[in-house]
Amino acid sequence: MASEQAKKATKGVLPLLIFLGVGAVVIPPTIIVLTAGMMPSIVATFITVNQVKGSVAAMTAMNLAGVIPVVGFLWQRGHTVDQAFNLLSDVFMWLMMLGGAGVAAFLLWGVPIVVQAVYEMQARHMIGRLEKRRMKMIEEWGGRIIEDSRVEPSVPKKSEKSDTEKET
C-alpha cells in the first residue's frame, strides 16, 4: 500500500524534474521564479496524496495564474538571474504568487461547503416527498402494509426498483 502511494506521489515528478533540469540550463531565471512561486503547489502535491485530484489541480492552476504575471515582469525587465532575485525580493510579487495559492485554498475549503448545503436541502426535500408518498400508501392500503412490508421479501422487482431509484 505504502509503495503504491509513493509511486502515485512521484508519478508526475519525473517530467517536472526533466523540465526543471532542461529549464535550469536554458532559462535559469524563469526556473528560479517558477520554483519559488509554485512552492505551495509542490507542497500541496505531496501532502494531498490521498485526497481528490481536483484540489491539486485547483491549487496548481490558481498558483500558476499568480506566477505567470511575475514571469511576465521578469521577461519584460530583463531575463537575468539578478532580475529574478530582484523580483523575488519584492513583497508584492510574493503577494501575487502566494495570493493565487491562497485563493485556491479558499475555494477548496468554501465550495464543498456550499455544495453540501445544496445537497442537504435536496435530501430534505426528497425525504419530505417520500414521506408524503408513504403516508398516501398507508392511507390506501391500511396500516397492515407496514407489518406486511416487514415480512415481505425485501428485494423489489427490477422495474419497481428502477422506478424508485429514479425518484431518489
Binding site: Q51, V52, A58, A61, M62, P69, G72, L108
Partner: peptide, 24 residues
C-alpha cells in the same frame, strides 16, 4: 459535496489561469 466542490474549485482555478495567461 467535497468531490464536487473540489472539481468546481479546479474549474474556477483553470478559468483563472486561462484569464491570467490571456491578460499577461
Amino acid at each position: 459535496a467535497q468531490k464536487y466542490g473540489h472539481w468546481l474549485a479546479s474549474l474556477i482555478s483553470i478559468a483563472a489561469l486561462l484569464s491570467s495567461m490571456g491578460l499577461s
